[in-house]
Write a protein that binds this DNA or RNA. Structure first.
Lengths: 132, 132
DNA sequence: TGTAGTGTATCACTATACTAGTACACTTCG
DNA sequence: CGAAGTGTACTAGTATAGTGATACACTACA
């Protein structure tokens, strides 16, 4: 695992790290049990503060993708493999959805809005299931 | 048009205003040519600074939904009606897409990630069309 | 057992997002 | 033409996000 950051993209460094780890897991570049590069190593290699790397790793831990072991390192969780497969399936479904949406000629921001609306919609629907 | 804000939602006030105007246009509550409430009126009614309302209205203007006329008011653009129809069509497509994705059991954040990935993907594909 | 290597914790700095205060300029219409 | 009502422009304060400096604590292994 080797990171490649774009400092002038406007995207926070820690988010770029998170994104790259997730991508590596989903493409199979990282497998369950694999050790991630050390916090210090990443910080030195990319010339940034260890805390920024920590922030990325802790977020990944919180999402259940990474396990941090005090004193020994950061590792890919065992459950990550299954997740990767599901995500690839989802990616395929989303692609065909966007292909159907493309002819409408919406901007990316409009598409985001439509997506968020629908997400909120189905969230609300899910809430109601257990109520009546 | 009457706004209803939630000050403790964490969502910036100006974004809430934008959202509500867009929603009103898409549902037909606001039609082409309709005048929006005055900047000052909104500011007074909702107990906030006029500048915050301005920010919302100017963003809506930038997106082509609203037209600001110096000295007379803010109005819904003529093009807004067509946009509303397209957005409703898109909403329907997005709904069926999310219904197909639901069985995979992804979290909302994971769905957002899948969506953004695919958006970037199709953006890249579009870039290549004119190149070779 | 001790040392090198690992993650952890606390505090601080800086840029940016958001909101606010206040004065200005244009339009309308009696 | 002038007064009331509208959007505009400029300046500034405050909260939060992002990043950094540095010291601490645990683990593995020779």
């Amino acid at each position: 695992m080797i990171f490649r950051l774009n400092p002038s993209s406007g995207i926070p460094l820690y988010l770029q790290l998170i994104e790259q780890v997730k991508h590596a897991v989903e493409t199979g570049a990282l497998h369950e049990g694999d050790q991630l590069p050390t916090i210090r190593k990443v910080a030195v290699d990319l010339v940034m503060n260890p805390n920024t790397v920590v922030r990325a790793y802790r977020e990944l831990e919180h999402e259940g993708i990474v396990e941090l072991k005090h004193g020994s390192g950061a590792f890919i969780r065992e459950s990550a493999g299954g997740r990767a497969r599901v995500m690839r399936k989802a990616q395929a479904l989303m692609q065909s959805a966007l292909e159907r949406l493309a002819p409408l000629g919406l901007t990316e921001d409009e598409l985001r809005r439509v997506f968020e609306n629908e997400l909120a919609q189905s969230r609300a629907a899910r809430q109601l299931e257990g109520k009546p």
